[in-house]
């Protein structure tokens, strides 16, 4: 195999890994983007919704044996999809009981004191969730390795019989599911009456009240849906990646990088942003050491925030 051939192979391998991982990041970002787009609140607990999605999936599949009858391949995916409704409920309750006291129409759109306390409130929630998870679930990394994670499709490269790109089956399935769910949410937000009312509340909360839209309820729904979507992404990550209670903060940064890249508040943009982060992360390994993979994300993130704060894919007229 020629050196060029090897480089091309490595590039294609990283590209494929980046796309598949990027789809998952995209789905996480969509959940966060929905919350940010509607409520204009920076939610630090989003990473912990992801982490809880992982544990909910894990316990649904192994803990109580509930889903064991589905077999080792189906059970993790069904579990991940079920984590969505569970976290939807959790998000709904969190907003209803605590968050609505400091957010809502008063604070919407303002970046004054209201915004300041929301930011710090979600930081407090994040600390409670991840440390509470540590108490409940222990610090041992868990994994829910789907048998698919050990299998791969081999795509031979035509120019060289010796080289091939391996596509991990678990990551391909997770990426496809992410695409489908992301697209479904995009359609619901774009087409349904509910989705339009969320977009209206995001666009102009005061005018939305004049239309008879309950903006507090819209915020609650956006928060709950966003938590559920991110939890599903978490469950899908868990099918081929180990996890522990502190993974939340690693991912929350990735999610924010993606959402900012996507222009803060557009669902499609958030998905593209997440995909871009996945690609940057995987392609960076070709040129810089593995440990700097994540540093590369932050450098890209900082460059985007400082040079193009409206995001790479952001357009002002298109929000949510």
């Amino acid at each position: 195999m020629t050196p060029l051939g090897a480089a091309v192979e490595a590039f294609l391998q990283a590209l494929a890994a980046g796309i598949f991982l990027g789809c998952l990041y995209g789905l996480m970002c969509v959940g966060l983007g929905l919350i940010f787009g509607v409520m204009r609140v920076i939610n630090f607990a989003q990473g912990d919704f992801l982490m809880l999605g992982m544990y909910v999936t894990f316990y649904l599949v192994t803990g109580f044996g509930t889903l064991a009858f589905l077999g080792p391949i189906m059970a993790p995916y069904v579990g991940a999809l079920l984590a969505g409704p569970v976290l939807f409920l959790g998000g709904w309750l969190l907003h209803r009981l605590l968050m609505s006291r400091i957010t809502g129409t008063r604070a919407a759109g303002s970046e004054g004191d209201g915004h300041y306390s929301q930011l710090i409130f979600t930081l407090g929630v994040a600390l409670v969730l991840e440390n509470g998870a540590l108490i409940l679930f222990g610090s041992e990394p868990q994994s829910l390795r789907s048998p698919l994670a050990a299998r791969a499709w081999e795509i031979p490269l035509l120019y060289d019989p010796l080289s091939a790109v391996f596509l991990n089956k678990a990551s391909v399935v997770a990426a496809l599911l992410s695409l489908v769910i992301g697209l479904a949410l995009y359609l619901v937000i774009g087409r349904s009456r509910l989705g339009k009312s969320l977009r209206a509340a995001a666009d102009n909360p005061v005018a939305a009240i004049y239309m008879g839209i309950d903006v507090d309820r819209a915020h609650r729904l956006a928060f709950a849906i966003g938590a559920g979507i991110t939890a599903i992404a978490g469950g899908l990550v868990a099918t081929y990646h180990p996890f522990q209670p502190y993974v939340g903060f690693d991912y929350v940064i990735i999610m924010y990088a993606g959402v900012v890249l996507g222009g803060m508040g557009s669902i499609l943009g958030a998905f593209w942003g997440g995909l871009t982060i996945g690609l940057v992360q995987q392609l960076a390994t070709l040129v810089i050491p593995l440990q700097l993979q994540n540093a590369a994300i932050f450098v890209v993130f900082l460059l985007v925030v400082l040079l193009r704060p409206q995001g790479l894919f952001g357009r002002t007229a298109e929000r949510v």
Binding site: R199, D203, N204, V206, A207, A208, A317, E318, V320
Partner: peptide, 11 residues
């Protein structure tokens, strides 16, 4: 119908 129109610009 509020002052300054306040239409939903992104819809």
């Amino acid at each position: 119908v509020p002052e300054g129109r306040q239409v939903f610009a992104s819809l």
